[in-house]
Design a protein around this nucleic acid. Structure first.
Lengths: 243, 243
DNA sequence: ATATTCTTTAGTGTGTACAATAATGGGCGC
DNA sequence: GCGCCCATTATTGTACACACTAAAGAATAT
């Protein structure tokens, strides 16, 4: 190993240093956000180490961080798996997001500069592009990053870090509960939201944000539990015939 | 090492398993909450390892978790120190807590059972006892745990984990900004709050909670920056004479 | 045949050695 | 004497080896 750090480029073009575990963390995080890693997937430390060319020590740090953000579940002596929230947990997560998003929206209206809003709008255009071009994975990730950008603009680091955890968990929820043929089209609502923020129309902005979350929650009520490891439930119809 | 786990006793008397790093984490966490560890204190991995009789591996995990909760700051290649929030950061933390505490209070009114409230009241009595007996450290910790208990009763794990991070950071803030001769007497307000919750008086409960936070924030406006490592500011009077 | 226990094995948990880094103090030229 | 550079040292970062755990399959007794 020649160096502990590597150079990476942010969207602003500035070079920033990333430690190895941050890189691994980011890769796994993105894979989950882009739904390339399905809920319930086992995350084997040794395999991941080979994939990323680092020792288990680094993988462990990354998994530990993901664990703390509740994006993966760390089961003692039994390894890590991508979290698969139940409907109950999903509702709690969406509830928490409601609270955070309301505060974030209000803060953004108070604090954001026109330049920041311009960049935000540009990002939503990228998001739109992805969906149009059929790159659903990147689209979902950018959709999440819209909300992270908002939290950044709110200028409140503790809220941002909480939002980070909530957004990634929401992505998992969408991965589990969303009907595959049902498209997101979140970018429409994102554009509307930016418009309301520019007009400093707090009520409209907050209500748009709440609608946004309603859409997620609606799906939770429609579908029952997700396709899961609960065999008894999966074959309840058969059991019903027999008993 | 004969075993990876150890037995510990919770306040409810139930035996639970704690991994080594959880124990170390809890010890450091409590030390910070009880203000036995001052903001800015360097946390040397090897020293801590000797103190707790474990290897740096375990210490590292504990520090990493504390780092994620923003209770300690992890500076790459330069080790961990107990966080010392600026007034600016302190205000952001208190703001975040306002949002969370409001939601928690409302949820507790809706969800909590009489039995839970009885236990909560009992805990505040302990807190009172500590202050009366002059054990300020334990009092401050129990004061924090009151708010954690509330978040637990709100029955929303994501909110609880965020609250955990916020409460410990608030404890740091109090450690830095509070005038030493000024007593807390938080237990009075805690009793009032429980009363309001029992009456299901949402408005009163929320407003009590907000007042509680006002008290912290007031101090931030009174004192300027805390006694800190910023030498330029500490000697600004001298500089003023010279220039 | 079934249940129980033992054995095996894959994989996680921890300690430790070594590498890389940043801070400190001494040496050197000016 | 003053400032710069290099060596030294203390401390963190990483890899790896071994210890421990738990799950799966084989062997045995009932």
């Amino acid at each position: 190993m020649t160096s502990q750090k590597a150079l990476s480029t942010t969207e602003s073009g500035r070079k920033v240093k990333l430690t190895q575990d941050e890189q691994v963390y980011a890769h796994i995080f993105d894979a989950i956000l882009e739904q390339r890693l399905a809920p319930g997937t086992k995350l084997n430390e040794e395999s991941l180490g080979e994939i990323f060319g680092v020792s288990r020590t680094i993988i462990r740090r990354a998994l530990s961080r993901l664990g703390h953000e509740q994006v993966v579940v760390l089961r003692p002596n039994r390894g890590a798996v991508v979290a698969s929230p139940t409907t109950e947990e999903a509702k709690q997560i969406v509830y928490a997001r409601r609270i955070v998003e309301k505060a974030v929206t209000e803060l953004v209206i108070e604090h954001s500069t026109p330049e920041q809003l311009r960049l935000l709008r540009k990002q939503v255009q990228e998001e739109q592009q992805c969906f149009v071009q059929g790159d659903k994975g990147a689209g979902i990730r950018l959709s999440g990053e819209f909300h992270l950008k908002m939290a950044e603009m709110a200028n409140n680091p503790p809220l941002l870090s909480f939002q980070r955890s909530l957004v990634s968990q929401c992505s998992l929820i969408i991965a589990q509960f969303e009907l595959s043929n049902q498209s997101h089209c979140s970018y429409d609502e994102h554009f509307e939201l930016i418009d309301a923020i520019e007009r400093k129309d707090k009520d409209k902005a907050v209500s748009l944000m709440m609608h946004h979350l309603d859409h997620i929650e609606d799906k939770l009520n429609l579908d029952e539990e997700p396709a899961s490891d609960n065999l008894r439930e999966v074959f309840s119809n058969v059991l019903g015939n027999k008993s």
